[in-house]
Design a protein around this nucleic acid. Structure first.
Lengths: 212, 212
DNA sequence: ACCTGAACACCGTTCAAGT
DNA sequence: ACCTGAACACCGTTCAAGT
């Protein structure tokens, strides 16, 4: 099996999917590909370029814009498609955040999303504001204020002590886990929260446009 | 000058402020403190805990909630204070995003912000939604879709080629830089964009509450 | 010209030997 | 009991030696 940039990237993605991004090293990747570490540098300038390429693989999984439906729905669907792509690769949000230069693949994705706004009658300026407003949601993620799994454990261990220090967090956790004290439940519905925020933003963005 | 956890954290923050987070290593930090690397491990369990402590220093710079003013303004001011703290330490957004477990300092900040919503008459559930909606803006930052400085250079170098591939990005850049072709200008006003999105969110959050 | 082993310049952290 | 030098198990990448 010949080495190619494409195969290097695909195997890197698979490796990160399995073991997390922190366990991905050039040396381990080379080992997995049954190749000497330096052989990778034929296909990728350095580790940064490897990570850029991995992001491109994920962004490449985002569906193209739907046509023939209202703009708000089309953008909504596209962002939810981005979210699905990101969720398939749990490491990707963190890696996307760490990139300095957008790659052509990322530029194409952003440009096409901008085009959806422009076609819906948004000015260049309002399109600009809309992108800033949607922020990382364009990439299908938001910074989670809590890692819910960890929080569950923490709350469980010291709920009494926390009640005094963080009453609102405890109240929220109790509500979310549908259990007043022992905190055993399904956790918070991230998908619902993502869509709630997304719809609120799209609504506000639409209102901004119509106000002008 | 005796070593203490506090001094370790303060010097670590100063070092990251100067040289960026990627240049901060336990060994360099120890060197700066004129101490053997292993001496740090008396005050900090490992590098993760060092980073947690550095985040605490930044979060500690966020002003406490203002009292006696309308909730929406108070929350607005607090989040803008968080933004000012983060901007003082350019590495901190990235480090905050990388944390797994919130520290007591971070929990206290979030709990007190939740309290502001609860006092304004928001239900526990709506407070929950509001936090998800504000996302990383609570910490004073948003994921920037472009690093503007780099984009400026890229656009400058290949504007003609980009016009074909990324027409909407070029249109936006031209508008933002107030120059149709040569792209020499002030760049986009991140502070304006942050406040635009923040106000849109707070407006939408208020409407959600009043709809119930 | 291409490929690659060894080496370089680092890491964070363990551990055992010193005080 | 505390402190710390050396060592360990890694990194990404350079470079010169081999084909």
């Amino acid at each position: 099996v010949a080495l190619s940039r494409d195969r290097v990237l695909r195997v890197a993605v698979a490796l990160a999917d399995e073991g997390g991004i922190e366990s991905l090293s050039m040396r381990k990747l080379a080992h997995k590909l049954r190749v000497v570490p330096m052989a990778l540098y034929k296909h990728v300038a350095d580790k940064e370029e490897l990570l850029d390429g991995m992001v491109d693989v994920v962004v490449g999984e985002i569906d193209p814009p739907a046509t023939g439906i209202p703009w708000r729905n089309a953008i909504r669907q596209r962002i939810l498609s981005a979210r699905r792509a990101l969720l398939r690769h749990p490491w990707s949000a963190q890696v996307i955040e760490s990139r300095r230069h957008p790659t052509p693949v990322v530029l194409a994705y952003l440009d096409s999303t901008m085009g959806m706004f422009r076609e819906a009658g948004f000015s260049v300026d309002l399109t600009h504001h809309a992108l800033h407003t949607l922020g990382s949601r364009l990439y299908g993620f938001t910074q989670e204020v809590f890692n819910d799994k960890n929080t569950e454990v923490d709350v469980q261990a010291t709920v009494a002590e926390m009640q005094g220090k963080y009453p609102h967090i405890v109240a929220l956790a109790s509500s979310v886990y549908h259990d007043d004290a022992s905190v055993v439940g399904r956790g918070c519905d991230d998908q619902f929260e993502f869509e709630f925020a997304l719809d609120l933003l799209l609504e506000g963005i639409e209102r901004s446009r119509d106000r002008r």
